[in-house]
Every structure is written in structure tokens, then in C-alpha cells.
Simulated assay, not measured.
Amino acid sequence: MAFSKQILVFLVLVGIFNISCNAQGLKLGFYKKTCPSAEAIVKKETASIMAVAPTLAAPILRMHFHDCFVRGCDASILLNSTTNNQAEKDSFPNLSLRGYGSIDRVKSAVEKKCPGVVSCADILALVARDAVSLLNGASWPVPLGRRDGNVSNSTEVLFNLPPPFFNITQLKANFASKGLNAKDLVVLSGGHTIGTSHCSSFTNRLYNFTGVGDSDPSLDSNYVARLKTRCSATDTTTLVEMDPGSFKTFDTEYYTLVAKRRGLFTSDAALLADSETRAYVTSHATPQGSKDFLKDFAKSMVKMGKIGVLTGSQGEIRKTCGFIN
């Protein structure tokens, strides 16, 4: 057991070392000389998309998260499956993602101005930031210079993405393996303030939590009753707001819900099981915590955006995000 723990610590440290080394290749204004209008084009196109479909902000933010946690922020989530390979986007946890067409639209606009210069990985990072900002959410500096990976394997998704049923110990270990700490965990979980979820991601908490037809005792009983009116035990299609009442606004209401034991997922409830994450939830379950949350979210997103990046001569700059060159 002690040896296993040493191996785990070693792997986490190696992962953090690789993250920090590669991230040094990123910098603000990376395209200042090669494509000075790149960020302005991304912002303009994202604004046009959001004006028509503001609900895309949540899935695009989630897409960026899912990309970075598997192979690092290398746009591997955007690659299409081939006859011989099932890509990440076709793995079960990613089947509900939306917004690929929007990323392609932004990429095409940038390509017209500066062909073969700006990576899909950088575009995804920028669109995620701009989409959140347009919902009155946080904004953050996005260091650029990521290169696109040429490998995308669906089997790697399940080993890297934290599922909604993880407990706090599993969540902290998963985030630590990516160079993120407990504060990053609770801050980035705040992204659940926007968007929706399929019933199937949490119905186990409503109908058969321990296998005897019971509900999760950590979920408010009144909320259980309300959710049961929306979701049957076998429902796989209905969408439920993760932050009812303000799911289109980037605010701290998510923490208010979690504090009231009304977070949808086991992973939301888990934030109350750790002293550090619980303290953050409690302090931000008030209007006063809003400014601090936006500031913290910005910092954690910058950290997340540096996970396992390819820089320099690594990878490539894809011409089309769904295909390697």
C-alpha cells in the first residue's frame, strides 16, 4: 500500500512538472506578429454565435475542460473518429457535448485571415473565455501558443475525466494529477452555474442510491421530490438546469444551491465533505462572494488552460479542427 501511494505521488509530481515545463511556451499576445487580429476575430465570431445561441456557453466551457483533462489542452476533443479509431468526442462522457460547429466557424474565420497560423487548441481556449464573459461571467487572460495534438482515443476519456459520481477523495486525486489543487476543484465546479444536465447523470441519487430503491440522503428531500417530477428512473433525454433560475447567468447561485444540499451531482455534494472546499462553498453562498469567485475562476481557468499543452515544434496547426493535416 505504501509503495502504491509513493507511485501515485510520483506520477502526480511528474504530471505537474510536465505541465509547468510545457506551459512556459505559452505567452500573452503570441500571435501579435503572425496574426495580430486573431483574438479580435475570435471575439467577434463568438459574440455573433452567442447572440443567437447563448446556451452554447456552458457546453463550450465544458468542452474546453474535457479537452484539457485528456491529453492536455491540445484540441484532441475536436478530432473526428475514423474507420480505425474512435475519438474522444465519441466516448460516452462526451456524447452530450455541443458546439463543435461553432468552433469550426471561428476557426474558418481565422483561417481566412491567417491560414495555418492559429491552432484549434488556442481557438477553443479563447472561445470558452469569450463565451463565459458574454454571460456576465469571469474574463481571464489567455496565454497562447498551444499546438494541436494528432491523437484522440475514446478509451482515454474514462481514465482521465472525473465522472459526476466521484467522491471528494477521488475528485481531489483526479485534479491533483492535472496539477490542480482543492481550491481549483471547488472554483471550477462553479462552472455548473450555467448549463443543463441529462437526468441520467443524477437519477441514481433519486431512485436507487444504495440498491434498495432509496434516495441519496445528502440531497435535500424536497429537491428530490421536485426532481422526480422531471426525471423518471430510466429517463435519458430530459435536460434539467444545473442552477435553476439563473442557468444562463454566470453567478454564485451554484454555491447557494450546494450549501442547501441541492447540487445535482454526487460530485457537487462532495464539496461539503472537505473542510477547504466546504469553507469556499459557504463563503460564496452569498452575494458578497461574487467578485472573489470571478477572480478565482479566472485564475483557475488560466491554470487549467496550461495542462499538458504542446508548444514549439510539438504537434501541428490543424487546417480543419476535426482532422489531422
Rank of each mutant, 00 (worst) to 15 (best):
I19W: 08
S20H: 13
C21Q: 12
C21T: 14
N22F: 04
N22Q: 12
Q24F: 11
K27C: 10
K27Y: 10
G29D: 12
G29Q: 05
G29C: 05
K33H: 14
P36V: 07
A38M: 09
A38E: 11
A38D: 08
A40L: 05
V42R: 01
V42D: 03
V42P: 01
K43H: 13
K44A: 15
K44V: 12
E45Y: 00
A47N: 09
A47G: 11
A47V: 06
I49R: 00
M50F: 11
P54K: 05
P54D: 12
T55L: 02
L56M: 14
L56I: 14
A57P: 11
A58M: 04
A58L: 03
P59D: 11
I60S: 06
L61F: 11
R62A: 14
F65D: 12
H66I: 07
H66F: 13
F69E: 09
G72S: 06
G72C: 04
S76H: 06
S76W: 03
I77M: 05
L78E: 13
L79G: 11
L79H: 08
N80W: 05
T82P: 06
Q86W: 04
A87G: 08
A87T: 11
E88K: 10
K89E: 09
N94L: 07
S96W: 03
Y100D: 09
G101P: 07
G101D: 13
S102L: 02
S102V: 06
I103S: 08
R105Q: 15
R105D: 12
V106I: 15
K107D: 08
S108W: 03
A109P: 08
K113L: 04
C114L: 06
P115I: 02
G116S: 11
A121Y: 07
A121W: 04
D122I: 02
D122Y: 01
I123W: 02
L124N: 07
L124W: 05
A125S: 15
L126K: 03
V127S: 01
R129Y: 08
R129G: 10
V132R: 00
L134T: 14
L134W: 03
N136Q: 12
N136G: 15
G137D: 07
A138R: 08
S139H: 12
W140C: 05
P141C: 01
P143N: 07
P143D: 09
L144W: 02
L144T: 15
G145Y: 03
G145M: 01
G145F: 00
G145L: 03
G145I: 04
R146I: 09
R146Q: 09
D148M: 04
D148Q: 06
G149I: 06
G149A: 14
